[in-house]
């Protein structure tokens, strides 16, 4: 389990993390989302043991991460921009990591060779960004980590390789109980793989839930009233828009409860549908003064 408790990080007076809290259950695939500059990468670097927090605690299985080789030996971290030694090929990096990560699995490394099909001797700096990412996954999955921390992991990968890699990760989660924390702006993709989501904004946690709970707790309603009809009292409306006679509402609340309330107000027509993660992200942040603005230039 990953626990981030009231963590503060200040860069030259700017609070990049402002008493942030997150909890990633063991075996979960946790999507960390937030607008640009929210502090996702900063938080991830703390989880990888790179940065030292100014206040608060970062624990993995109850142990602090920073300067703790025992914990870090069970964590594989893939940053947005992967670094390799200048002259090194995949094989060189494999030798390097094999001497450092105690659970590096050569059998797995050999099996993954067929998946990635990359030239192991070619210097990695000559690889495309996507190929470098593939190499990073090859090496990271060979470490047999308990925790996989991924920052924009599939950026630059082609759709086939994206699916391939997610398939490998999901397999690890299922077979070995690997815990995955992934930061991405591709919410459509996260929605497919994540079972938990945390939305952070301005260095703080806005929402943290199991994805199912989150989707159960917010609904989109399209409805049409007869003249003189009106919405029932007591709905927690996050967003409302109207096109002709059709109103579209984003309402916080369980689908069955909202349905009952709407039905009681006798609209001519209504439809209650769950929100996508992207919609949840947009409407939740809209409440935090981070909304799409209607600007005409």
């Amino acid at each position: 389990m990953i626990e981030v408790k009231n963590v503060v990080k200040i860069f030259d007076g700017y609070r990049a993390l402002d008493e942030i809290n997150i909890n990633v259950p063991k075996g979960a695939i946790y999507g960390l989302v937030g607008p640009n500059g929210a502090g996702k990468s900063t938080l991830i670097r703390h989880l990888a043991g790179i940065y030292r927090q100014d206040a608060g605690e970062i624990l993995i299985d109850g142990q602090p991460v920073y300067e703790n080789p025992d914990v870090k030996g069970r964590v594989a971290y893939i940053p947005d921009e992967v670094f390799y030694f200048v002259q090194s090929g995949i094989k060189d990096m494999m030798h390097f990591y094999r001497g450092i990560y105690p659970r590096f699995d050569m059998d797995r490394y050999d099996k993954l060779r067929t998946v990635f099909n990359l030239d192991e001797k070619r210097p990695l700096r000559r690889f495309s960004r996507g190929m470098q990412k593939q190499a990073a996954f090859w090496l990271a999955l060979s470490m047999r980590p308990d925790y996989l921390i991924l920052d924009e992991p599939v950026d630059g990968l082609d759709p086939v390789m994206r699916r391939q890699i997610w398939s490998l990760i999901l397999g690890d989660v299922e077979e070995n109980g690997t815990t995955v924390l992934v930061s991405s702006h591709n919410l459509r993709e996260l929605e497919d793989v994540c079972d938990h989501v945390g939305i952070i904004h301005k260095g703080r946690t806005m929402i943290e839930h199991a994805l199912a709970d989150l989707q159960d707790n917010i609904v989109k309603v399209q409805l049409v009233y007869q003249d003189g009809g009106s919405l029932p009292e007591g709905l927690d409306i996050l967003h409302e828009s109207k096109s002709g006679k059709i109103s579209t509402l984003i309402i916080r609340g369980r689908a069955d409860e909202v349905t009952n309330m709407i039905e009681a107000s006798q609209p001519l027509f209504y439809d209650v549908v769950p929100l996508t993660l992207e919609e949840i992200f947009i409407y939740e942040l809209g409440g935090a003064e981070y909304a799409v603005k209607d600007i005409f230039i």
């Binding site: 025992d70 870090k72 030798h95 390097f96 001497g99 105690p102």
Partner: peptide, 20 residues
Amino acid sequence: MRSKTSSFNGSLFRSNLSRF
């Protein structure tokens, strides 16, 4: 499981020697 690492890391050492 304990890490292989301590105040000296042979893999990093060999990497330095071979790279530089």
